[in-house]
Design a binder for these strands. Structure first.
Length: 277
DNA sequence: TGTGCCCTGGTA
DNA sequence: TACCAGGGCACA
């Protein structure tokens, strides 16, 4: 699941592949017009140079020379695949961007949850997004204040991008485990000291994540990723996570057992022995 | 604030 | 063959 480190890695690869090049054409290979660019948006983007690629939370923004912006969200299984025009298309290709000098960038997305849309020049509006967790903007004071306003359990709160940018279901479980906080703890009851621990834990799990661990779903390593690391089937190495997906296994820290819990329709994994409310 | 929906490959 | 996974959005 691409979370912040993986999206950062993807944006970097995209930047290196296409910055300065000119879009020749964009093809959509999935029938969902709501998720991908309609014909008028594709026509408008053709002929435009790509001037900049940036990332905000899990959103990638491709800035074009005319001021328009292509917004891309990988959701669950999206990734970039890079090739040359004329090469066979990668598996699960949903959108294909070709440049005038023959570079081909494919949005590959096995579950087709991903999103690409065009914002007209000057019309870019992003949803409210909280601070980037690896920057100085992510302060304990602001994080504590935001959590204090939440009445529900803390784990679903961490998934709220308005609270902090880029945390997904996996790293939410991992960070709470690192901070020894129960995912069921009411967000507003978590003390400032524990919020600080959680802030540090979020940074730890994000910084520890080797971005290259995220692999394209077609089984091939993402372009530019080292050959070592995760298995080629896209799954994380067995020991990649401290708690995520380890339901029924022993806690890595204490004698407890990892338990799965459903919160807001998402799986949460935690140790009931060393993670306290 | 919680639930259901989108979507489809992989798994039981 | 049915079910599960998940990010973000609309809705109750």
């Amino acid at each position: 699941m691409p979370e912040l480190p993986e999206v950062e890695f993807a944006a970097t690869r995209l930047r290196e592949a296409v910055a300065g090049r000119v879009i020749a054409r964009i093809d959509v290979l999935h029938p969902s017009p709501r998720r991908h660019l309609p014909p008028a948006a594709r026509r408008a983007a053709a002929g435009q140079a790509i001037v900049r690629v940036e990332r905000r939370a899990k959103i990638q923004l491709i800035h074009l020379a005319d001021g328009a912006v292509l917004e891309v969200h990988f959701r669950m299984t999206g990734d970039w695949a890079f090739s040359r025009v004329g090469d066979p298309p990668p598996r699960f290709e949903r959108v294909r961007i070709e440049t005038t000098d023959g570079v081909c960038v494919s949005l590959v997305d096995s579950r087709a949850f991903g999103l690409m849309r065009r914002h007209a020049p000057g019309a870019l509006v992003l949803p409210p997004i909280g601070p980037e967790p690896l920057t100085d903007d992510f302060t304990v004071a602001a994080f504590h204040t935001a959590l204090a306003r939440r009445r529900g359990p803390i784990k679903p709160a961490l998934l709220d991008q308005k609270l902090v940018a880029g945390i997904g279901n996996i790293y939410a479980s991992e960070a709470l485990w690192e901070a020894r906080i129960s995912p069921s703890a009411p967000a507003h009851t978590v003390s400032r000291a524990r919020v600080e621990r959680l802030r540090d834990a979020i940074r730890l799990v994000l910084e520890r994540a080797p971005a290259a661990r995220y692999y394209a779903r077609d089984g091939a390593p993402a372009d530019g990723a080292p050959a070592d690391g995760a298995p080629a089937d896209g799954a994380p190495a067995d020991d990649a996570w401290r708690v995520y997906g380890r339901d029924g296994h022993g806690c890595h820290r204490c004698a407890g057992t990892v338990t799965r819990l459903a919160q807001a329709g998402r799986s949460t994994f935690y140790c009931g022995r060393c993670q306290r409310r």
